[in-house]
Design a protein around this nucleic acid. Structure first.
Ligand code: FES
Ligand code: FES
Lengths: 141, 141
DNA sequence: TACATACCTGACTAAAATGGTCAAGTTTAG
DNA sequence: CTAAACTTGACCATTTTAGTCAGGTATGTA
């Protein structure tokens, strides 16, 4: 079970963005340099964040990205969903009545994995970008 | 973030084993058939479970595997650890002072991922094989 | 108006991880 | 003696990951 770098970078970049987003848009170039993330890769990520209305883009010189919502309204769930970082613990299709083994009933561990998925998602739902910014302020003063 | 089938199968197989482990050892062949898991793959998995003293093996005809501990003392953590299904959310080496970005300090999201890792591991530490057997009895009567 | 900056898009790919299979044993009950 | 079942290690196809590359397009500023 591991986190992919797409999800990790998305959150990193947004925390960085939120910290510097005062008046001016923040360019991916700056984020790239500060956080050591490939610029090309960041572009892919922000394209998705934009589609999901988490950020707004401003083109041209002095352009960049700005948050599209209040940091308190951006939960980790939203970010992960935007970049397709999904938590997948069950193997079967959830809608289906069939199990992961092809049988007509769910497998003997299905409920367990389902519980786990909920457990993890709860964490993501309760954590907002604002929380992260604050945590970060504390540790750096 | 997804669960690999090694971890999933390990737990599945152990629940199956625990349910049928009365007097006689349970053969992998039976587990394979009941749970639709490749026999060859199960062998790899049980080899690891054995090394970690979660099961005991009995060779020869009528042989098979038996639990090596009380189901209540086998936590998901133990099972996952045995088959190398590890939760990895931070990117950096934990012991090191350096961050995942190569810089001298931890990255701005390090604490978050660390929290997440603890959150998930807590789930695994609190869930025992016995819990799973009971859950399963309930749903099947 | 030129031009540099920065967003935008899609194709491509090397490397790693995953989810197994295959082959050749050894042990032991009956 | 033989079949059932564990044991070990090598091997491999496919998928996923984590990017790179090569073009574009929009726009503020000089
Ligand atoms: S995970 Fe849903 S049936 Fe096995
Ligand atoms: S995850 Fe530990 S420093 Fe980034």
């Amino acid at each position: 079970m591991k986190l992919t770098s797409k999800g990790r970078y998305a959150v990193m970049a947004l925390v960085d963005l939120a910290r510097f987003d005062n008046i001016n848009p923040v360019s991916l170039r700056d984020i790239s340099l500060r956080q050591s993330i490939s610029l090309d890769y960041l572009e892919q990520i922000f394209s998705k964040l934009k589609k999901n209305e988490i950020v707004k883009s401003i083109r041209g010189t002095q352009g960049g990205y700005v948050l599209n919502k209040n940091p308190n309204d951006i939960k980790l769930t939203n970010i992960f969903h935007a970049v397709d970082e999904k938590v997948k613990t069950v193997q079967c299709k959830k809608e289906s009545k069939r199990g992961c083994n092809g049988k007509a009933t769910k497998c003997i561990t299905h409920n367990l994995w389902d519980e786990l998925e909920i457990h993890i998602n709860t964490f993501f739902e309760n954590k907002s970008l604002e929380d992260l910014i604050n945590d970060n302020k504390e540790t750096r003063v």
